[in-house]
Amino acid sequence: MTESRLVRQIAHALRHERERAGLTQQALADRAGLSQAAIARIERGDRLPSLTTTERLLTALGRQLRIEVEPLDSHLDAALDEAATADLNERLTNFKLDRLVDALGDLPYVLAGSTAALLQGAPIPVAAVEIAVRWRDSSTFTAFLERTYAQRWNARWEEWGGVRHEPEERGEHRWLTRHGELRARMVDELPEPIEVRHGGRTYPVEPLVQVEVTDRRAAELLRRHRQRLAAGTDEATRATGDTAGRAGGSAG
């Protein structure tokens, strides 16, 4: 799948509207005068359709295209704003951190990625529990996945299931278990963890400086968070200076 955010958005929108209309890919292809294979490639994000093709597809679904622009990376700002105002305990409960950690049992792991960053005080969005697991522990990890009736994420069809869940099999290391969603980074050796205590529990956590090296998405969010903090500090400094200047002028 391409890395373009626009391609992913168009793919998601077209698939959503097709499923909302209760149509199969073949039925939509027949209406729009395209092949089912072309529809599949577009919905997977393998290709960016032309505006003409996009309009044909949406017209066949009784919809139309509307284009808007927004500040660059505003989607990141919205995600950070939402994360900053949310209660940490509630967030940890929502993505079932403790349930998954308990279910992992004796499997050696370290909390990684955005999960590690959140536990170290970074107000960034987290959608799933993220861990680092050693390759040599993959059989133990597979046994955990079997116990929890895990379904693996099928990136080709953008749905859960349909692929073998063993980490040795090709595909994203992302599973939906009965305890919640889990994402893993398979490594030769676990990163040296730090211990983070929260709510009466202690978690083995990948240090924040290491997260920024190993997790591109988390690193991008952390950079954005720091930029916003710096911009806010600069704005506050300017406002203080302006106030002081006005006060000095009045006193004179």
Rank of each mutant, 00 (worst) to 15 (best):
Q120M: 06
V213Y: 06
T140K: 06
R147S: 06
T85V: 14
W135Q: 08
D234C: 03
L34Y: 01
E130K: 08
D137T: 00
R201L: 05
L145Y: 00
I67Q: 10
V101Y: 00
E90K: 11
A155H: 14
N89D: 12
E168T: 12
E189Q: 14
A231V: 00
G62L: 08
P193I: 02
P108K: 04
T59Y: 07
R170T: 07
A84D: 04
L208F: 14
E3I: 06
D98C: 02
I42R: 01
Q210L: 10
Y109A: 06
A231P: 00
G45R: 01
R47H: 09
L221S: 08
R246M: 11
A112C: 04
V213L: 15
G249D: 15
L182F: 02
V213T: 10
G171T: 04
A84P: 01
Y109I: 09
R47Q: 14
T240R: 13
G113T: 01
R201N: 05
H225L: 15
D87T: 03
G45Q: 00
L23N: 02
L88F: 04
L221H: 11
H12S: 13
R152S: 00
H16N: 15
F141G: 00
F144H: 01
L107E: 09
S74F: 02
A112W: 00
T54I: 15
T24M: 13
E235D: 10
W135Y: 10
R183W: 02
R174E: 07
V163S: 11
A150K: 02
Y203K: 07
A84K: 03
G162M: 13
Q26M: 13
E55T: 12
A40N: 07
V205G: 11
T177F: 02
L28K: 06
D81T: 03
A244E: 12
L176R: 14
S74Q: 07
D77I: 04
A218S: 15
D102K: 00
S74V: 03
E146Y: 02
T142C: 03
N89M: 04
L119R: 06
R99E: 11
V187C: 12
A244M: 13
L34C: 00
I67L: 15
G171S: 04
L34G: 00
V163K: 10
R223I: 12
H198K: 12
L48M: 15
G200E: 05
A128W: 12
A218Y: 05
R228N: 04
R170S: 11
L111W: 05
T24E: 14
M186L: 15
L58F: 09
A40I: 01
G62N: 12
T52N: 11
R217M: 10
Q210H: 09
G180I: 00
P207V: 07
L118N: 09
A13F: 05
L118C: 08
E17Y: 06
T237C: 08
A40V: 01
E206F: 03
R216D: 09
R183N: 05
I42G: 01
V205F: 04
L100E: 01
A78E: 07
L111M: 07
R223H: 14
G241Q: 15
R197G: 09
G162K: 13
T233L: 14
D46E: 07
L111N: 05
L119E: 05
R31P: 07
H225Q: 14
L107F: 06
T233P: 03
R15E: 13
P167W: 01
R31L: 13
G105A: 04
R63H: 14
E3L: 12
Q120I: 03
M186C: 10
E19D: 13
R224F: 03
G45T: 00
S35L: 08
